[in-house]
């Protein structure tokens, strides 16, 4: 049993509900226990950073200090990329020097030694144990589903804070998708920002940020976008309709690209029904594609079975032919031998 301190973040019970539902579904199946940090508070996200550097450090530090006291020895998992970056940046600052830690302790008025690490859910899922557990629980592979894995900006950048070694082309989610049989496409917008806050403050200017992400996913043959962040998810999934309306008005084709959390797809592969992992409450219709691809996968499997059966038949025919030839050869050899024996006997008789 792997155990972590869990920082749900403000969207966990609201706009990110499907992420929470599917995460707990998958975590249960693979034996990962997530213990909620008692009395955690909002991480402050970029609003805190754009208000005051001290505030940006202090808000996450309060929750991390509670976790250190109440859940000692457990690393902290923050599924939301926005929370992750805030927590991780605060942690990095605390680990820089004793002076920084003293300053934090003064502000949060609590002991804090920055002992625990902060992880994304993808990092938890990166371990061999978790991968083996997932493989063992897969009941049906999501074959034929072409996915564009979208990591967004906050999980990978700044690279030194996020300890990310492949900022332009991260692979963790792609690998998980391969593990459950889906086909990750290679595309250019994996870590492009979707402008979650900008959609509120400068909506006209920020809309193209989302549109370009859909466009690039579509251009590279993706059926859907897979994400690991509730802010990205809400932004893409909820606003696809607005973007489509504008496209239609301009005489362009609308997109039909559902978005999923990677945990939802892993849940499906483990045998969950779409509603069980929260897919039923998405904005853009997300079930039809899954049904279509399940059908495609079945048809593909059927065709593969057919091909295999034909192959078997061919093999059997060949084997029969070989056996017949062998028998023919053996019979001829025996006949020749008996003539030889007869000739020898004749010679001996003479």
């Amino acid at each position: 049993m792997m155990k972590y301190a869990y920082f749900p973040g403000c969207s966990a019970e609201t706009t990110g509900k499907s992420f929470t539902i599917s995460t707990s579904y998958v975590a249960d199946k693979i034996g990962v226990e997530l213990v909620e940090i008692p009395d955690w508070n909002c991480c402050g996200t970029s609003a805190a950073a754009l208000t005051s550097p001290e505030l940006a450090v202090a808000l996450p530090a309060r929750s991390l200090a509670i976790s250190e006291r109440e859940l000692p020895g457990l690393d902290v998992v923050a599924p939301c990329a926005g929370c992750y970056r805030s927590l991780k940046a605060s942690l990095a600052y605390a680990r820089e020097s004793q002076e920084n830690r003293d300053q934090i302790k003064r502000i949060i008025n609590a002991p804090y030694e920055a002992k625990a690490d902060v992880l994304t859910l993808l990092e938890v899922f990166e371990s061999d144990d978790v991968r083996e557990a997932i493989t063992a629980k897969v009941q049906r592979k999501l074959r034929c589903l072409k996915v564009a894995c979208y990591y967004g900006c906050a999980m990978v950048r700044p690279a030194d804070v996020c300890e990310c070694d492949n900022v332009e082309d991260p692979q963790q989610m792609d690998e998980l998708m391969r593990l459950i049989g889906a086909e990750p496409v290679s595309w250019a917008f994996k870590t492009e920002c979707c402008g979650a806050a900008q959609q509120m403050t400068v909506p006209v200017q920020a809309k193209p940020m989302i549109e370009r992400i859909f466009q690039n996913a579509a251009a590279n043959g993706a059926d859907c976008i897979v994400t690991s962040c509730p802010l990205c998810m809400l932004n893409l999934d909820m606003r696809e309709a607005e973007i489509n309306a504008a496209r239609v008005a301009r005489g362009e084709e609308p997109f039909d690209i559902p978005c999923y959390y990677f945990t939802e797809l892993i849940g499906l592969a483990m045998g969950a029904e779409p509603d069980e992992v929260g897919i039923g409450i998405h904005f853009h219709p997300a079930k039809t594609l899954l049904l279509q691809r399940e059908l495609d996968a079945l048809e593909l499997e059927y065709a593969e079975n057919e091909a295999r059966a034909a192959e078997e038949r061919k093999k059997a025919e060949m084997a029969a032919k070989i056996a017949a030839k062998k028998a023919e050869k053996a019979a001829k050899a025996a006949a020749a031998k008996s003539t030889d024996v007869a000739a020898e006997a004749e010679e001996v008789a003479r």
């Binding site: 009395d39 508070n41 001290e54 505030l55 309060r62 300053q103 949060i108």
Partner: peptide
């Protein structure tokens, strides 16, 4: 409305952080 149990404590943390910011 969702509330954190320790919301008074969170408010105090915010105030102290902003004081430290102003001092700096």
């Amino acid at each position: 409305i969702h509330n954190t149990k320790g919301r008074a404590n969170v408010a105090a943390v915010i105030d102290r952080a902003l004081e430290a910011d102003a001092e700096r």
